[in-house]
């Protein structure tokens, strides 16, 4: 958040001359770097951003190392990350029942207050049964567990229909709803689970760093209309590129 505020403040200061002249204001590299040097960013804030990223994404070992090396305290108990990652891993490897039980052990209110997530887990369970070729089991599960959810919710019903349609096709990988069997479907469900657990732990479900980078790009785009300045084009290197005039 603070990075973008700094850039916006600069934007303000060069705004007025531009509105008078029709051409863009040019900021040289020297001038720009001088301005950047004037901006004081606390090391601790940077570290907290990094820690927030590691915690949210679930890199527990790295977070632990980073905690020791930088002295930055994580926002939540690192042990809870391990639990969360185990749940995520279970979904990603298709062990949906195991994931459900782990979620319930972590916090039994998550799935009771989040019907959509519960449905998606049940749907994933059905997908896994179909993938494993357990057709009669899949049918029984669809009838007993999923059908009642469809009666409660129209959107769920449509999703159930799509999933059950997988049973009709011989070559399920290439059928119209084949993407349900894709790894991406597991990842989608896993990330939904991850977000719900984070929310239940009072933690934001997205790390701050990526949105900060999005804000940087947005601000540069805004600035482009008013000035030519050394721009960051490659986010991986964050190198300043001289303005092309």
């Amino acid at each position: 958040m603070f990075l973008s505020r700094i850039v916006l403040r600069d934007l303000d200061s060069i705004d007025s001359p531009v509105s008078m002249a029709s051409s863009k204001k040019v900021v040289t590299r020297d001038e720009w770097e001088r301005k950047l040097r004037d901006v004081k960013i606390r090391k601790e804030d940077m570290n907290r951003l990094v820690m927030n990223f590691l915690v949210t994404e679930g890199f527990v070992d790295v977070a632990e190392k980073f905690r020791i090396e930088s002295g930055t305290q994580p926002e939540i108990d690192l042990a809870t990350i391990t639990d969360r990652m185990e749940v995520k891993k279970a979904v990603q490897s298709g062990n949906v029942q195991e994931a459900i039980e782990k979620i319930n052990d972590l916090n039994p209110t998550i799935l009771d207050t989040n019907p959509q997530l519960y449905f998606h887990l049940q749907q994933q369970k059905l997908i896994e049964l179909i993938r494993a070729g357990k057709i009669s089991e899949a049918l029984e599960f669809a009838q007993e567990e999923l059908a009642p959810r469809g009666e409660e919710n129209q959107t769920f019903l449509e999703e159930i229909e799509k999933t059950v349609a997988l049973l009709v096709f011989e070559d399920i990988k290439n059928c119209p709803y084949g993407e349900l069997l894709d790894v991406s479907q597991r990842l989608k469900t896993a990330s939904e689970v991850n977000a719900a657990i984070l929310t239940s732990q009072s933690h934001e479900k997205d790390p701050k760093l990526p949105s900060l980078l999005k804000m940087l790009l947005w601000t540069q785009n805004q600035l482009d209309e008013k000035a030519a300045y050394p721009r960051i084009n490659d986010l991986t290197t964050a190198e300043l590129q001289d303005p092309s005039i």
């Binding site: 459900i100 039980e101 319930n104 039994p108 799935l111 009771d112 989040n114 019907p115 519960y118 567990e145 009642p148 409660e152």
Partner: peptide, 9 residues
């Protein structure tokens, strides 16, 4: 517990 959580039926 694991059977009933989230499951009205």
């Amino acid at each position: 517990k694991n059977q009933i959580i989230g499951n009205r039926t």
